[in-house]
Simulated scan of single mutants.
Amino acid sequence: MTEAFDRDAVLGQVYREVEERFLRSGRVDLAHGWDHIERVYRLALAIAQREGADRFVVGTAALLHDLGRVAPEERALTAQGPAASERHHADLSQELAAELLAAYGVPTAEREAILHAVLAHSFSRGIEPQTLEARVVRDADRLDGLGAIGVMRWAITGTLRATAETRPYDPADPFAERHTPDDRRYLLDHFYTKLLHLGKTMSTATGRALAQERLAFMQRYLEEFRRELTLAGLPG
């Protein structure tokens, strides 16, 4: 790292650049918008302080981890014409992040650490984080899918992905006690296919502690859901 490189100044510049890109994109994804980025950024920095991780690497990667979601449409496709398909947002985020980091003159070591954290944050991409900084960013991103905020994001995402066949829950088995959970068919099943399992994927002590708190809230939410469905607690 050269003495001329001002980490705090660059982190602030990246913050403003990413915020502007999200706000001007015009895309409506309330579960993965600037609000999500800003929450993950603040949470990642808090975890980094507790865990002794590099603040600049963590903060920058947290800001850039979903940049691919607001990429120009032509960048988001693997090809043109009938064969075109959407690229994974983590791959596109890493590509756009590399361009931005180069423009800001981020040194090689920090740049590689940030790009690894950006790629490794994704649940579906399945890449294990190899550094403390990447683990912090991944934990922060997954924590935003838990707790009260997680319930809100679950409802938003489920609605956006719903098809004509989608139902809120299986009326015969709402809590997936007898059927194999299928969150493409039933929205509530997403708790059982993914959300309730995220705690086991946390890789920092701080992340695990926060996950347990947020998962406890989600369990209470499901208990209340069951109580209301079964009409339990009616006045005697």
Results as ranks from 00 to 15, higher is better:
M1K: 11
E3D: 15
D6F: 08
D8H: 03
D8I: 04
V14L: 12
V14M: 10
R21G: 07
F22V: 05
G26N: 14
G26W: 07
V28D: 07
L30T: 14
A31T: 07
G33R: 05
W34D: 14
D35T: 09
D35K: 05
E38I: 12
R39N: 01
R39I: 08
R39V: 10
L45A: 04
I47E: 04
I47Y: 00
I47M: 04
A53D: 11
V57T: 14
G59C: 09
L63V: 14
L63G: 11
L64G: 00
L64Y: 00
L64K: 03
D66Q: 02
R69P: 09
E73W: 12
E74H: 13
E74P: 03
R75Y: 01
L77D: 11
T78S: 09
Q80M: 14
Q80D: 15
G81R: 11
S85F: 05
E86A: 14
R87G: 03
A90L: 06
D91K: 04
Q94S: 09
E95H: 06
A98S: 02
A98H: 00
E99H: 10
L101E: 06
A103S: 11
Y104W: 12
P107A: 09
A109T: 12
A109R: 11
R111N: 03
I114H: 03
I114T: 09
A117M: 05
A117L: 13
V118Q: 00
S124M: 07
I127A: 08
E128W: 06
E128T: 15
Q130E: 15
E133R: 12
E133L: 13
A134T: 15
V136W: 00
V137R: 02
D139M: 05
D141Y: 01
D141I: 07
A148M: 10
G150H: 01
M152T: 12
R153Y: 08
T157Y: 03
G158M: 02
L160Q: 13
T166V: 13
R167N: 01
R167Q: 14
R167M: 10
D170H: 04
A172P: 00
A176D: 06
E177S: 10
R178D: 09
R178V: 14
H179T: 15
D182N: 15
D183K: 02
D183P: 02
Y186V: 09
L187F: 12
T193L: 01
L196G: 04
K200D: 11
M202V: 14
G207L: 07
A209I: 07
L210H: 05
E213G: 03
E213V: 12
R220Q: 13
Y221H: 10
E223S: 07
E224K: 10
E228C: 01
P235S: 11
G236C: 12
